[in-house]
Amino acid sequence: MSALDVLGTVVMAAGGALSLLAAIGIVVFPTTLARMHAATKSASLGLALLAIGIGIVAEGWGLFAVGLLLAAFLFGTAPISGHMLGRAAYFAGQTEGLVHDDLAGVDLRPLHVVERAERGFSVPRWFLLLVVWVVFWRDPTVAVLAGGAIVAAIVEMLLTTTPGVTRVRPAAVIVFLVRYFGMVVVSNLRVAREVLNPGHDGIREAIVAAPLSTDSIFVATLVANAITFTPGTLTVELTDDPRVVYVHVLQFSSVEEIHEQVADLERLVSAAFAA
């Protein structure tokens, strides 16, 4: 067995273990919102590790790239579905077990709509879409490249631009991604520990309102998305005015701790993307 085989096997085994823990978690956790922690955090990382692990073992670099793309897709979408389902569950009245609730009494418009931004064409984003296309075809022939260039251009023209991104700082982006990866691992370990803890007595659920200081919608969205994969927290709602993110906490100790955690994340994202 080569070193790559060992690495791939370990990654895959971790993915399988996390997937199983996610399933156990959604059965043993006491409330809907607590179950969502297991379903979003553990299941996403579990599937991502499975796909990446099999890519390493098969030594098919195309498959490995697909695994990474799938991971990126899961980490982008899981917080969205988690947020929407958590919000729906909260408004459906599933608030039992909360020791602290900042959302109580807040009048939120159901399904509120943010105003549309103007359309625009961004070459870097077009190129990114083209790369995704080629990775999925796994065969960069002229036809694939040409088809990808056209499809990416159409998608790019139909997309709305996100206001507030004026600069991307590569070094800060790498710092953010490394820290973010660390947070993902820690948050999964904390959920796993709670699943395996027979009494689940570490669970103290709360919803905390954490104010954001950024005026960029892009940064606010990215922070809200990333919170779902940081330790013990899950975004339930993001309001625009005032800009506040409501976070569901699995193992609540203090409001200040959550404020600190969100502010730390916001600093990282702002350093990478804000003007």
Binding site: G16, A23, I54, A58, G60
Partner: peptide, 17 residues
């Protein structure tokens, strides 16, 4: 949702380039 992700995981483990 989880069931579908586990299914995708199962498909991934049959992966072959």
């Amino acid at each position: 949702d989880l069931l579908l992700l586990l299914l995708a995981g199962g498909v991934a483990t049959t992966g072959h380039p």
